[in-house]
Design a protein around this nucleic acid. Sequence first.
DNA 1: TTTATTTACGAAAACGTTTGCGATCAGATC
DNA 2: GATCTGATCGCAAACGTTTTCGTAAATAAA
Lengths: 344, 344
Amino acid sequence: MKFEAITIKDIAKALNLSVSTVSKALRGSHEISEETKKNVLAYAREYNYKPNPIAQSLKRGLSKSIGVIVCNIDNNFFSQVINGIESIARQKDYNVIITQSQESYEREVANSEHLSSRSVDGLIISLSAETKNVDHLVKLHEKGLPMVFFDRITDEIATHKVIANNFKGAYEATRHLLEQGFLHIAHITSSGSLSITLERLEGYKKALADAGLKPDPRYIKFCQHGGMLPEETRQALTELLQLKVRPDAIFTASDRLSTTTLSLLRKMQIDVPGQIGLVGFTNSISADIFHPSLTSVVQPALEMGQLVTELLIQLIESKRPVTQFQKKILETELKIRDSSLRMP
Amino acid sequence: MKFEAITIKDIAKALNLSVSTVSKALRGSHEISEETKKNVLAYAREYNYKPNPIAQSLKRGLSKSIGVIVCNIDNNFFSQVINGIESIARQKDYNVIITQSQESYEREVANSEHLSSRSVDGLIISLSAETKNVDHLVKLHEKGLPMVFFDRITDEIATHKVIANNFKGAYEATRHLLEQGFLHIAHITSSGSLSITLERLEGYKKALADAGLKPDPRYIKFCQHGGMLPEETRQALTELLQLKVRPDAIFTASDRLSTTTLSLLRKMQIDVPGQIGLVGFTNSISADIFHPSLTSVVQPALEMGQLVTELLIQLIESKRPVTQFQKKILETELKIRDSSLRMP
DNA sequence: TTTATTTACGAAAACGTTTGCGATCAGATC
DNA sequence: GATCTGATCGCAAACGTTTTCGTAAATAAA
């Protein structure tokens, strides 16, 4: 199965020109007479000539493609981010190659190596929950592969980063629960090695502190796989419910965690928000038809994807080494719905 | 920003061999002595040699990448399919380039041309809702670009196709509503030009007919953009609710349509299933925490993605032209939940 | 007329591979 | 001793493009 396309050679032969002349004519070089240019362009258009991007890549040493590593695409937050990435990439004529780490460190390492050997021009990464060591990325970065981080970032690599204001988002979510009169607010979150986990945890603690409450470590549950495995969340929730002073509200720190927790509470016949209030980080487009509708901290996922892609392409296309890096922090939005309302 | 990697040339120079010898040694050719092979392999391993895939692509005329065109990635059904695509592609060492048509015919055309000029080795497609004419794909297919379809397919191109048993899925959904005692069952579906629309419509009609009911065209609403625009769904729903004999149940034909309809019914304060029963095609992982939990026809999305990718790669790698094509039909599953239960 | 300058084009190398073929040399066969 | 065979390797072309450099003709300046 071959897919034959017209090449510069064909044009050259047809018009009795040399390959180099045709190439220059196509790029509008001043070295070529207007008439020749016209002829070449006309012929190219007629036969629908498209330059072979692979040959161009080989020549230029750039592939016009960028790699993406996220934990999972089947997740409203990440699929929205990818939407944003794709829109900018397309606009700037880059291809996007998406890979999933499934929260596994090993797969993240394999993906990053595979992508770099696939000669992508740059990498967009959100770390996996399992990842505690970023040497694999440091190595690639030192070799000169441009990369940018979003959402789950690391301090160990100096480059552009885009995150949501996780601290503030978590703070507002927790404060909202406090304002509703909840007192024993638990927190179910992802792996402690993730930046978002720490930031959200700090926001949660600060809100409690500001209300004169002392965070209780027993109320804070980490899920090493970020909610990929429902069993993990069940475990965390079960432990919370067995505490002597059972929490009267839960703040969940990620998309999967939020929906799974709500699902489990329903299966356990626990009334939300009657017996337990709930606020979660989630970008689910269906949060308002959940039972109960889910109060959520929504991240500007689309913008994050767009912004991070713009920064990466900027890095790729910059002539001189970039030394000034940005850390963009986008604001979240607290959408108050039924799951957190003490008195509806 | 350059990203220098070791090449065959470097190895050749270091070991005092020719480029061709090194190349052959790396591929384990019988022309090369065991000792030389050992040396080359050792050196390659030590310096972490990875063949430049772009150069290989140029040489072989194959890029080891496949293009995907779906309407939208931010949708549980499609993201699950892509999950399946990715798993097989990775396993067979293909890259996946994902594009979104956003249900627009123009973007579908642009994407298909962009991908083919990007020299992907093959295409996986689910047609956009707007697409009525597939000439752009016929042209590429005739030029020899392997392609396979899933979900929204066309008869005009002879190739492998993978779909769910839409007829049966729709039939069972409708029959279930009938069994629950609903009599006036409306159907909100996508564009009439989509294969899935027709198949599901037929299943719906057949179930009604088998129950001795005559399908009423006023009860059938088409959404040209497949639910991408909520306004379209609102319009359809509003019209249904204004009928003299208001439907007492609705069967929605796609992911977005289902969640949007449920959302709108809630906003309109219409009790589901009390006033209106609801069954929808959806792969939402949260259908059981909807209010009410949503009875749904679930498609084996992951398997669809895996299967369609296997078929494509089979096509790409086949030495001789393939003339026998498969149309795989995977079974759906009806998950009965609250939204369709007359008497809970 | 001679010499410089411009214009318009072609030859060839390069990017990193793969591959057919020819070269060399050893040993085997007659 | 001449020929053959097999093993091992290098040369060179090829994939399609870009780009540097050279060169011929045409024009301008001397």
